[in-house]
């Protein structure tokens, strides 16, 4: 565990808490893509199956359970409890366009052709693109509430910090995983446009509005 990895994890947990609090306090999930949230739930479900097979550390297990529980709670709040506030019409990204290519790619490019390894690889690929329905929703409505912007910034920062963690681990421990690194780079690139808008607008107190 190094500082980049820990900061990344904190940022990830922070993002999830921001999102849950936003939905809970405003009693609304307006502006949030349920499809991205479903994809994240699929990501955690397929990646953290190893909770039952491998023990890494208490920290690791607690975080995995936390991600599974909070993503389940988010999906529940969006599709059951506050269903009426869900922005159904704007959340029109077709997730099969992400699920199918990720599934095929994980069958072809993986470290080992076993069920657990392919599912892990699938979850890594899927996570890298799971935010697309959310970014698509923001681009369709042309704006995002500040709290949603903070959520996206924290969520995007998490993988960017992991990239630094991987650079550090490569140099210090000679540890690297090309699949995770490749997907992490893709994931971070997808946020770049948003990061730019966040820094130039939201941090200056303006609402995130896309240029017409």
């Amino acid at each position: 565990m190094n500082i980049f990895r820990f900061a990344g994890d904190l940022s990830h947990v922070f993002a999830i808490i921001i999102l849950l609090l936003k939905i809970w306090k405003t009693r609304s999930c307006a502006g949030i893509s349920g499809k991205s949230q479903i994809l994240f739930a699929v990501v955690y479900l397929t990646r953290y199956l190893d909770l039952f097979t491998t023990y890494v550390s208490l920290y690791n297990s607690v975080m995995k359970v936390l991600f599974l529980a909070t993503s389940g709670a988010t999906v529940y709040l969006m599709y059951v409890k506050f269903k009426a506030t869900y922005d159904h019409n704007h959340d029109s990204f077709r997730i099969e366009f992400l699920l199918i290519p990720c599934a095929l790619l994980s069958l072809v490019i993986n470290h080992d052709f076993t069920v657990m390894e392919v599912l892990w690889t699938f979850s890594i690929y899927l996570e890298s693109v799971a935010i697309l329905p959310q970014l698509f929703l923001v681009s369709k409505t042309g704006e995002a509430e500040s709290i949603t912007s903070h959520y996206l910034f924290a969520l995007g920062s998490y993988r960017a910090l992991y990239l630094l963690n991987w650079v550090y681990r490569y140099m210090v421990e000679s540890h690297y995983d090309l699949i995770a690194i490749f997907a992490g780079v893709v994931q971070t690139i997808l946020y770049c446009d948003f990061f730019y808008l966040y820094i130039t607008k939201v941090l200056k107190g303006k609402k995130l509005q896309l240029p017409a």
Partner: peptide, 10 residues
């Protein structure tokens, strides 16, 4: 052996 990956990250 590089095929066996240590999955110690989240």
């Amino acid at each position: 052996y590089p095929g066996v990956h240590v999955k110690d990250e989240l």
